[in-house]
Design a binder for these strands. Structure first.
Lengths: 194, 194
DNA sequence: GCGTTCATGTAACCTGTTACATGATTCT
DNA sequence: AGAATCATGTAACAGGTTACATGAACGC
């Protein structure tokens, strides 16, 4: 239930509309947690019901009115309480690794192409994060926390990029020639031992 | 839609029951993709409807009967087709990083304790993965793919463990004393600029 | 006696994605 | 002229979690 808390944390910087929050989730906090505007509007309604935020209508001319949300004391308390709950690491869950697991049943050419595309994506994000991190001069606790977040993102992208390179090597035609493409027959029938 | 394909890949090793699959998801393939038994039974029903798997009842004495599922040719074709679709990297999405982002509003003692717990978890998994990887001698393409998967898991745990250590250092009382705990007032009112 | 394993499933709920809907303004 | 931005939402669906339900066998 971290969307709720990601919203409360975001509103900690000051009142925002659902629209503002959606942009915020696309930019800064989006590296740690993502949400679409439909999700955000739904969650804001719930938060208001439970008294964790209040809303204020701001009329505008020429464009739709805004609805600004602010955290209440009850909301701040909920945040503090949440921060006392243990946070389990979410293990890797990846489409691509499932394909690798069933490599024998896959289209190898397509797989190698996707691997190259992924490598590029990781390199781009690595470059972007490095640039931001290099310029960061944290002054407040919050800024320090955000920098630490950026740091794990950097490590994450760096390792994935290196892994993609290694894997491209490991799956190159020369290396693959040394492996059987087909599973031995006695593994094909009956329940596998492991 | 990778649960479908994780099941098809798993059944590639031979017929399995829903129960077997659930265990499989808790063990081997569970590192790449997870699923509960309720999810698996639901998905198997769909797969059978679409003709991607067939089922066979196996009566047992003393315990509930088993229902063994096998991939059909249509299922194998679906897998191949799936492997041609691009696989987007799923970006980091982490509870703990949201807390770090809103560090000013958190219970710091609890946070440091959770950070220590996480460090331990990462170290344990790192040790486990290292052990398995050290013994691996891939012979088939499938085994090679699984080893590559293990390798990214290893890197992932290693980096997270190191990051936890660094972050514990960065958030130690001595280091924190140099930072303002409170955001300057002009950031507290109105919409933030970034 | 009590918990675990084996083996199937259902039901309610929460979360996340995609598409639909409206309508003025501003940029290219 | 057409696309993007501002700003709100709803609806349908897909994916994932948790709890409920049953019942025999086996180890401690």
């Amino acid at each position: 239930m971290a969307l709720r808390d990601a919203i409360l944390v975001s509103l900690g910087d000051g009142p925002m509309s659902g629209y503002d929050l959606a942009k915020h989730f696309d930019e800064t906090i989006g590296f740690f947690w993502r949400a679409t505007h439909s999700q955000i509007y739904r969650e804001l309604a719930k938060l208001k019901d439970r008294g964790l935020v209040t809303s204020e209508h701001v009329p505008q001319s020429g464009r739709p009115n805004r609805i600004l949300y602010s955290v209440t004391d009850k909301g701040r308390e909920a945040l503090l309480e949440w921060s006392r709950q243990p946070a389990a690491a979410d293990p890797v869950k990846d489409d691509f690794l499932v394909r690798l697991y069933g490599l024998e049943h896959m289209d190898m050419d397509a797989l190698l192409e996707h691997l190259n595309q992924r490598l590029e994506g990781h390199r781009e994000r690595l470059a972007k994060f490095s640039r931001i991190a290099a310029e960061a001069r944290p002054r407040t606790l919050g800024e320090l926390g955000r920098l630490r977040g950026l740091e794990i993102g950097l490590r994450y992208e760096r390792e994935w990029a290196q892994w993609c390179e290694e894997t491209l090597q490991a799956l190159s035609p020369e290396n693959i020639a040394r492996f059987d493409t087909v599973v031995p027959l006695d593994n094909k029938k009956g329940r596998p031992k492991q």
